[in-house]
Design a protein around this nucleic acid. Structure first.
Lengths: 147, 147
DNA sequence: GTACTTGCAAATAATTTGCAAATAT
DNA sequence: ATATTTGCAAATTATTTGCAAGTAC
């Protein structure tokens, strides 16, 4: 595990249980975002008794610790992925659900401008890029060449 | 109605029905985002027989025409608001749900950088700012002064 | 007149809550 | 020992679908 999820949970006063370890492991082994359902299925490999509810609760915990973040699709907000960068953002592949995190979103300039123009006091922002990862992009181009 | 929603629907080949007029009117009179449920309730004033399902279908239509856009909250994606600017973005007041649209998000620079760094081919982006509108901000400060 | 729309009821999907049993510390 | 955590079943909330009746054009 790149990020010390277990350590972070422990320092936060949360108990290290088998279900939580399982969710942490699944998330850290995933290179994309996963639905709660998918996480549950995978997590059962390491903790057969785990239920969907516990996964939701663990995700909630990880989210509050800034370790996981929701991935919003145009259809809804149905995914979770690990977030190692503080205030980082995701770029998501629409084909294979791969997620890469990036930091520095240059949004400060916009925030300043919009603050000035609207009088709003901006507290948070949400940025997500969607597209095709290199592999899916290549596959896509190949597919189009010979329809 | 600032934007000619009805005209746009008509040009798209959609029929101008009472329920659709009602939804268009409600959305255009709203200064914030509204849930499908809330839109239905308001729309009944103009079209008493309207049902939630039709509202969802109308919103889907308006969204496909680029006239309405979903508002994503941290908790989910449960709102809709009018979108007059092509490729515009929202700044949302977390207290009163007021929504103001702004354009130009300076995201191009980030997109170019992330494209270079990840090899992703970016097709879309999603940006939303959350904060307090001037009124709610003032109210908030007043409330804190005398707790 | 006909193809598009509507509204209902029911289906599906996503997430949350109550609570007794299990367990990490 | 004890407060936290789990998993189930059931409740909620959000959204979609099938279909007969209604309606804009």
């Amino acid at each position: 595990m790149t990020v010390d999820i277990l350590g972070a949970m422990q320092s936060a006063g949360a108990r290290l249980t088998a279900p939580r370890r399982a969710v942490a492991r699944v998330l850290s082994e995933s290179h994309g975002w996963m639905s709660a359902e998918a996480i549950t299925a995978r997590a059962r490999r390491h903790c057969p008794s785990i239920g969907l509810v516990t996964v939701y609760r663990t995700l909630e915990l990880l989210e509050s610790l800034g370790i996981a973040r929701r991935v919003h699709g145009p259809t809804g907000c149905h995914g979770y992925a690990l977030a190692s960068i503080d205030d980082g953002h995701f770029i998501v592949c629409r084909a294979c659900q791969q997620v890469i995190e990036f930091e520095g979103c240059d949004v400060d300039r916009v925030v300043r401008r919009v603050t000035r123009q609207t009088g709003f006091q901006v507290e948070a922002h949400m940025l997500e890029l969607v597209g095709l990862c290199p592999d899916c992009g290549a596959r896509h181009r190949t597919a189009r060449r010979k329809p």
